[in-house]
Amino acid sequence: MKHFLLSLLVVCVILGMVHTVSAEFVFEENLSIGDSSFDVYELQKFLNTNIQTQITQSGTGSAGNETYYFGNLTKNAVIRFQNMYKKEILEPVGLEYGTGYVGASTRAKLNTFSQSTRKNSIESSSDILDEIVVPHVLHEYKDLILANPSLYTGTVGTKITLHGLGFESINTVYFGETKIENVESIDGETMSFLVPDISYGKYALEVKNSKGKTDTDTFFVIKDASIISPVVESVSPSEILYGQKVTLTGSGFTLKNNEIRTSYGVIEGVASRDEKTLVFEVRPFPDTPGIEDGVDMGQNVTWPITIRVINDNGVSNTETVVLTY
């Protein structure tokens, strides 16, 4: 019965029966078609949390594939959202139907989701699972674990929450070598703090208390608010064989030290000559016996590999390349 209830909870949440917003994100800018910004990305993430307002079911703009660009799909999703909350968004400004323009009344409604339900809200699938698992499996775990941050990029002063286990009432959080001391945790599983005022860039994120210090691959990119995060606009080719080159085309890539984070591994130090393209070879598990470059090995396996670009400008949207072997 317990598993039934837990599974039901997962299904209900995943089916988008609740709207949720990323940690304390506040929509402060008006948004409309043609805009490109981090706010658009947060807007798309929010709209994708409800099946009635999702940007699209699959591909660019779908849940997990949000972008920074406000196009027609985003506009149509905003219209659906505005029509859902007609009395609060449209009627006060004399409108009958949604327009797709995110102005003051729409932002006000969006921000009610981020502020009123934050404490118990579930902002990603990881957190959905946290909510389920923690009560009956993990509560008694005593070691220090840093699971994941609520955000992986943001500006100085952004509030982020670390999820994990074994946090003590007072902890130290490390941004690279920079220490944030006396970070409090009430429940032992979360702690929140503001991004410190240090140089922009990517930092390893770790936690230390009397139980030890974590040693994970967790990171955070402190970005300049005026700089747009990297955007992957296309992946070419979209379907590949083992060992083939893939070209990512987009914007916000840096001349050097781009990190391509895929679902099979992390490729560091990738250069971009023009800051618009990145090239890499897809080689998961290269030590596997019998594996050959550019050959369909006839195993009838089709594996969508996720790709993100991380650099000093921030974290990109997610794109996919399909590997067949």
Partner: peptide, 18 residues
């Protein structure tokens, strides 16, 4: 090919999964 939710990092070593 098994679907997964954010941040879709399976089967990479070093990630936290639940």
């Amino acid at each position: 090919g098994t679907p997964q939710y954010d941040h879709q990092s399976l089967p990479r070593s070093g990630v936290w999964a639940l």
